[in-house]
Simulated scan of single mutants.
Amino acid sequence: MVNITDITPPRSRSASASTTSSDVALPSFESLAPPRPPTTKAEEETRVVVEGLGSDVRLKVDAGPGCGGIAWPAGEVLSRYIAYRHGIDPSHLRNKKILELGSGTGLVGIVAGMLEPSSEVWVTDQSMLLDLMEVNAELNFPASQTKRNVHTAELNWGEELPDSIPIKDLDMILAADCVYFEPAFPLLVKTLCDLAPIGKDIEILFCWKKRRKADKRFFAMLKKHFNQFTVEDDKPGAKEVYGREGVSLSRLVRKK
């Protein structure tokens, strides 16, 4: 069981949403990042090249909901890693149930679903990003496909996990560019703990771009519950390239 006080950062003048009292509930994710009207237009589409996928990933982008509605470097790094690994050994994704946290555009989860039709993937985020993720899933899977293997679902960090996702059966968690909003750090750690309880065999791939000193607070919270290991089996030379851009890719393993 995760103690809220273990993942709550100390109170500071710049983090009014934080609390040191276990009697005070964590704020909701939506209250910390309130929704804004969408701004997507028909022509606002980008394409992401993922080697080994066979086709570009088409993405509608939307700055209306904030930073979640556009593609970020760590998402591309994680997408290219799972594609590279799948090319060597498809069993990593075959028949797996996969959840992407903080999906935004849905890029990483969509790539996983495109790579391996036998997988079942849930791309998740706040409610105001559901339509964008749904549009992007539809863009990348033919309308003639009888059963799409990429699903969209609302999942707010720090809150109860949705019943629409088979949480207990998940084999893999994907998370890219989720470390950016300091008040949400304890919420993200709590959700990771809920998805990967002690003793559960689950792979967690976590990719992020170093931006601010405050990010160290997140990893200090995370370290109480997870061991973190740098991914070493990426395509030769890839880590050096994205490392120069401040991007890191790790596996998280729940501590016993």
Rank of each mutant, 00 (worst) to 15 (best):
S91C: 10
S91E: 13
R94T: 12
R94E: 08
R94Y: 09
R94M: 14
K96Y: 06
L101S: 06
S103W: 01
G104L: 07
G104N: 03
G104S: 09
L107V: 14
V108Q: 03
V108A: 00
I110G: 01
G113Q: 11
G113C: 08
L115F: 04
L115T: 09
E116D: 08
E116H: 05
S118I: 13
S118E: 05
S119F: 05
E120T: 15
V121C: 02
V123L: 03
V123Q: 02
V123D: 00
T124Y: 05
Q126E: 11
Q126I: 15
S127Y: 13
M128T: 11
L129K: 04
L130I: 13
D131E: 09
L132A: 03
L132M: 06
L132E: 02
M133H: 01
E134C: 09
E134L: 09
E134P: 06
V135T: 08
V135S: 02
V135C: 09
A137C: 05
A137K: 10
A137N: 11
L139S: 03
N140W: 10
F141I: 14
A143Y: 04
A143F: 05
S144M: 12
R148C: 14
R148F: 07
V150S: 04
H151T: 15
H151E: 02
A153V: 13
A153E: 11
N156A: 14
N156V: 05
W157V: 04
G158Y: 09
E159Q: 14
E160Q: 11
E160A: 14
L161I: 10
P162I: 15
D163S: 13
S164V: 15
I165C: 04
I165Q: 08
I165G: 00
I167T: 09
I167L: 06
K168F: 13
K168D: 07
M172W: 07
M172P: 06
A175E: 00
A176L: 08
D177N: 08
D177W: 13
C178A: 11
C178L: 13
V179F: 03
V179I: 10
E182N: 07
E182T: 12
P183C: 04
F185Y: 15
F185L: 10
P186A: 09
L188R: 05
V189Y: 02
V189I: 13
K190Y: 07
T191S: 05
L192I: 15
D194Q: 09
L195N: 02
L195Q: 04
K200C: 03
I202K: 03
I202L: 07
E203Q: 11
F206P: 01
C207Q: 13
W208I: 02
K210Y: 08
R211P: 01
A214E: 10
R217Q: 11
F219N: 01
A220S: 10
K223S: 12
K223C: 08
K224W: 00
F226P: 01
N227Q: 12
T230W: 06
